[in-house]
Design a protein around this nucleic acid. Sequence first.
DNA 1: AACATATGCAACAAAATGGTTGCATATGTT
DNA 2: AACATATGCAACCATTTTGTTGCATATGTT
Lengths: 115, 115
Amino acid sequence: MTNLSGAFRKSTHHHANIFAALGDPTRLRLIRKLIDGKTYSISALSSGSEITRQAVTKHLTVLESAKLVSKVKDGRESLYALNPKPLKSLQEYLEIISSQWDQTLENLKSFVEKK
Amino acid sequence: MTNLSGAFRKSTHHHANIFAALGDPTRLRLIRKLIDGKTYSISALSSGSEITRQAVTKHLTVLESAKLVSKVKDGRESLYALNPKPLKSLQEYLEIISSQWDQTLENLKSFVEKK
DNA sequence: AACATATGCAACAAAATGGTTGCATATGTT
DNA sequence: AACATATGCAACCATTTTGTTGCATATGTT
């Protein structure tokens, strides 16, 4: 990566990917279930769901490729656990954007006061 | 809406929708351009882009239906402006999730200390 | 061994997404 | 009026997404 705009594009793609992974109600529900730090098997995560176990599996692989969850085999079960790093990363990203917006408002305010 | 789980589902869908709108590199770039509080026409937002003006228009309608931007006609131009509310909303949402995770870590810590 | 449970894998289908091209329409400029 | 610019709209296409069903395999239980 030789220039800054390239680095920005890379980071934009990366964050967009995490946003996309969270951009589905089922996956957001999975994240909220895993937020207690416990591990859950696929059947545990599927029970009570409207959709099939296989569909849930697919959603989990989406979350896994965004590194939002990690999977470990335990006997006949596949246990999933949350990985908070991408969430923290998104949080920081939104904080930067928000602070830029707040700066925008601040600039507008001082502009008005000058008049 | 008679029960809490219904309200939660609604809010989950709502947030998932905003996440999804941000889950594309092109749209994320548009947001970052609009963060300065200025309004931009479609051609202004398209210039320098790899993709066509019509594609950018489609992305803008996605952002608009998630209420991340708003559109106003001005002469022959369509001017788009950022609406920060959904961003703030997402930020709060991530903060809640993060704090739940931090609480999880806290609980784990006190559990270990008891032993 | 027999049975039940948990998961993996593949094929399939419908719908959504992301992009294009072509053309019409509206508005500003000379 | 003639021309250039900005946008809207529709048709079309390829790919991805989201879900299904069916079956195989692996592991735990009795």
